[in-house]
Amino acid sequence: MQVQKFIIKASVFVLINIALIWLSLEILKVFENRHSYQNWETESDGLIIPQNKPYDLLIMGSSHGRIFARDKNLLRVDSILHKNTIDIAKGGGGGGIVSNLVLLKYFYSQGNSAGQIVYFMDAWPFFSRKWNEDNYFLTNEPIRYQIFKDCLHYHIDRDVLLNYFKSKYTADWLEQEPVSREINSEVLKDVSPEAIQKRLASLYIEPYDDHVFNHYAALLEEVVKLAQSHHSIIAFIFPATLLDDNRGKEKVIKLLSDFKAKYGVEYYDYSNAIPDPKLYYDHDHLNTKGVVYFTEKYLRPIVQ
């Protein structure tokens, strides 16, 4: 009798909480829908990925890809390329292989399409879980069932998933507004070998490991297959930086060569293509002038 009473009351308690979760998610949607965001006004992809929209070009990768959207750069890119572009690359360290795969899946799941995909490729996401499954890349993403499901599928860390939900109940999330991050006026003053070493140390947080590399190589292959199954032509670009970073790059180039042979995808190494510091706002991010220069000189020939 007492067990029965407990089970009934516990079930009611659980149901009340489920109802409250549902209610709170509905309330969160009201907050999310208060503003409509342009691609350059938020770092969130969930807030800018629409439904059933065809794009000519989709940019993905890390912050090295996101700079093509920030500070209204996307308008400049569209104007130079005469294309309709969406940028779902993840900045702030969230541009690992897994996050890109999850977000690309979400993009397609919403009925969208992309004629061409440019993936700005870095070697460091192949080195550590901390750039992938253990990365808090969902903090600025709205709650979406599809994203959550794929995160479970790709074994995203439990704390990351917990934080995904919890981060939606914070003032930062509820009070956010469209903001265009300015990188126009910022110019790197001098190239500092010390700062470069510091930056590389922050990117390569773990030593190379074959097992880890192969795990992310397999996930990158999934990205290629996913793109091709949705009739998108995918190309990989090593972004222009001043880091002179060769750690692990050979391995990634070898991997991309294999992809080229197997899937016919192209890759381009522009990592040392722009040595002029005036075109950067730090040692590995192009400023607006740099983005325009890169788009005109290197991206335009790739994107037909």
Partner: peptide, 20 residues
């Protein structure tokens, strides 16, 4: 009582610092 229990649970959920 139930308002208190549910409220406490939600305070933990919303204001708790997780990360074990």
């Amino acid at each position: 009582r139930w308002m208190m229990y549910v409220g406490l649970l939600w305070l933990i959920w919303v204001y708790g610092v997780f990360g074990a």
